[in-house]
Amino acid sequence: MWPTAVVQGGRSAWKGPFFVAFPNLKHALENNIAIKTQARACTILPNFIGIRFMVHNGKDYIPVTVTQDMVGHKLGEFAITRKRFTYKQTKNK
């Protein structure tokens, strides 16, 4: 009846959030260097705030600047993986 699963995101509480320990976090924050990563499943932690990430979308790296409101979401939510279909007229029939 009560939606505990929604609160915990379907993950056991004892595991805590999944995240990747970026070794260059402090350095990146001080020098405003973008961290290039493919870890789309990494949860955004409070100490990521203000850091610029380049998140892989399967093809290239999309810039994502982490703000306060993004905490708790995943990095991959901010780098879309799909391209909008556009019709291109063929030249030779």
Binding site: D69, E77, F78, I80
Partner: peptide, 12 residues
Amino acid sequence: AHQRMIGSYVGR
């Protein structure tokens, strides 16, 4: 509105 504001996939 929160999802839309932070520009996540769900909001889009």
